Amino acid sequence: MANNGQLQLPKTLIPLIFVGFFVVLFISKSTVTIDAGEAGVLWKRFDGGVVTDEVPLGEGFHIVAPWNEVIVYEVRQQELFEKMKVLSSNGLEIQIDASAWYEPVYNELGHLHQSIGQNYLQRVIQPAIRSAARSVIGRYTPDDLYSTKRDAIQIEIYEETKKILDKQYVQLNEVLVRDVTLPPTIKEAIESKLKQEQSSLEYEFKLVTAAKEAEKVRIEAQGKADANRILSASLTDKILQDKGIEATLELSNSPNSKVIVIGSGKNGMPIILGNQ
């Protein structure tokens, strides 16, 4: 009913509105939805705080007491990109660009949240990879960093970083050294040295090739000389006469006109006269 132009609600409806409001508030505080690639850590206000002895809440819809709280973590693999200035073994400043692939240990999310918190990237991962990079690079010279040792350096940085993070409930999957930047003067000196070494190797290769070719020619010549010497030693007068007779018999069967004088040649060999 209206009174002086104002709408009056029934007295029984007002309590229902309040009850409905608190029911909606209770439901909104008691439900949580965890998206794909995430997990939730449960914090109980009246029962010991962070739950560390249970599996984290997985993806999907969950109902919790309104006085408790769920802290959501991304559990996918994530990437950290770092530009670091470090010193080589001889004290030169080197800049390296590196990436780290990491993810929180799923079943240890409660311990991670309790001991480090959601900003574990800044608290443990970045300091760990920087410390490992300084330690590893400090054992190498700029020549090592510029040439063949880069893969070994990358592996060492990964192993040293992993030792630290394994104790911090973080799983390190990979460390990639993407680039190493040396001071310009050092880079030019190294490149010049590498060119000289390459030229020296090419010259040595040519010398070795020439020596092998000369040895091959010498061996071939020696072989021919030995063959001729053996052949000469085996050709007696009797063998030469027999070869001459064989040749004469073959020529006598030829259709070309000829005159054969038997026994008129040197050593009794026949003389062949005639036209082709």
Results as ranks from 00 to 15, higher is better:
S89H: 13
N68V: 01
E82I: 06
M84I: 10
N90F: 08
M84L: 13
E74M: 02
K85Y: 15
K83W: 10
Q95R: 13
E74S: 10
E74Y: 01
P66V: 15
F81Q: 00
I71C: 06
Y73S: 06
K83G: 07
V86Q: 15
E82T: 09
Q77N: 14
G91P: 14
K85R: 12
L92V: 13
V86K: 12
E74L: 04
E74C: 02
E93M: 13
E82F: 04
E82Y: 01
W67I: 07
F81I: 00
Q95P: 06
E74D: 06
A65P: 07
A65H: 08
K83H: 09
P66R: 14
Q77S: 13
L80Y: 05
L92F: 11
E93V: 15
E69H: 09
I94Q: 05
L80F: 02
K83V: 11
S89R: 11
E79P: 01
I94W: 04
E69L: 09
R76Q: 08
K85D: 14
E93R: 10
Y73A: 03
Q95I: 15
E93I: 13
E79V: 05
M84K: 08
W67S: 05
I94E: 04
R76C: 04
P66F: 12
L87R: 14
Q77D: 12
E74R: 09
E79K: 11
S89F: 08
E82M: 02
Q95D: 08
I71E: 11
E93F: 10
